[in-house]
Simulated scan of single mutants.
Amino acid sequence: MDFRYLGNSGLKISEIIFGNWLTHASQVENDIATRSVRAALDAGISTFDTADTYANTAAETVLGDALRGERRESLEILTKVYWPTGPKGHNDSGLSRKHIFESINGSLRRLGTDYVDLYQAHRYDYETPLEETMQAFADIVRQGKALYIGTSEWNAQQLREGQALASELGFRLISNQPQYSALWRVIEAEVVPASEELGISQIVWSPVAQGVLSGKYVPGQELPAGSRATDEKGGANMIKNYLREDVLTAVHTGFAPIAADLGLTPAQLAVAWVLQNKNIAGAIVGASRPEQVADNARASGVVLEPAVMNAIDVALHPVAEFDPAKTLSPEVRPS
């Protein structure tokens, strides 16, 4: 496993990150979730990403239980705040000082730790003054409840404004967590250049495009039973925009053969592709089975030659999304 610095900080994370969105306490049983975490540790993964909203806080509990007994100093535990939790009342979402402090305390309790390595604003909150949000994060850092602060799906302007305030308050934003894959490249035009300027790294989610880049979805065929595309708890809704005939054809006839020529699975190639971007510190992978973790972890350290990167562009560029305006946060706080 290779490790990379996170933003302009001294913190290193594993470039393959285990994430438990849509799986722990949701799609898979707790014993399988625990076995997947153990598989991640065996593969050299030290960084684990979760959020209070995943399975309405239950995913944090599952992760905390699975990591119990591990040396805390050898792990990087990441979580997030913004989306609704609990009974989803009028103050149970967003980035107000009240919700941030209640959320960090709940996350620490569920995770079974005194601190998280990275606490992330899961979206931008238009209903809370940015000054209030950043002051709350500054106080949490000073209290030692979070060592570093990051964001998720913030656009370039929001990152610049947030970093300016953070600097005034004596801390720095060191990361942003956007969706990014060879099919979803909306951060490349604005977010990545701004982040490089600000000393912020990307921790990317969905590097395999919700599984579409794994090649398991074949054009003209039925969706595989038990796949994310058939999961009505949330997976099917997330993947549906990728299940177009032109996308599946491009993956099946263009992308998958490139992976085969390299001796990689399509999923490994997808993860390796995002890691070629120097602004990417790590790629989050999930798993519904322990063996999936080991498979994805093999993408660490893979170097893709320029000719390979160009061939992937030729195969997927026509069906990829590039519009930077699609880096979005809800205008109204969700409930």
Rank of each mutant, 00 (worst) to 15 (best):
E222N: 15
D65L: 13
I239M: 02
A320M: 01
G89T: 06
T61I: 09
Q177A: 05
S300F: 02
A320G: 07
P207G: 06
V116C: 01
R333H: 11
I187L: 03
H122Q: 09
R35E: 12
T47A: 02
S107K: 06
G106A: 10
L95R: 01
G220P: 04
V247W: 05
S300I: 02
R289H: 12
G220Q: 03
R244V: 15
D52K: 14
V251K: 05
Y217L: 01
V251E: 13
R160E: 15
R72A: 08
W273R: 07
N20H: 02
L198C: 04
G254M: 06
L173M: 12
L41W: 09
G7R: 01
Y82K: 00
V141T: 02
G94K: 10
L41M: 09
P257I: 10
D117K: 00
G220Y: 04
Y180R: 03
N56Q: 13
V62H: 05
L11I: 08
N176K: 11
G112E: 12
D52T: 11
S288L: 08
L75F: 05
L169F: 08
I203L: 07
V81L: 02
D139T: 13
A25G: 12
A39P: 02
V191E: 07
L6D: 15
Y217S: 10
A209V: 05
G170W: 01
A283G: 06
A297P: 00
S300D: 10
I45G: 12
V271M: 08
L169S: 03
A320V: 04
I16Y: 13
D295G: 11
A272R: 02
I149M: 01
W205S: 02
P266T: 05
F137D: 07
H122W: 07
S167Y: 10
A297E: 09
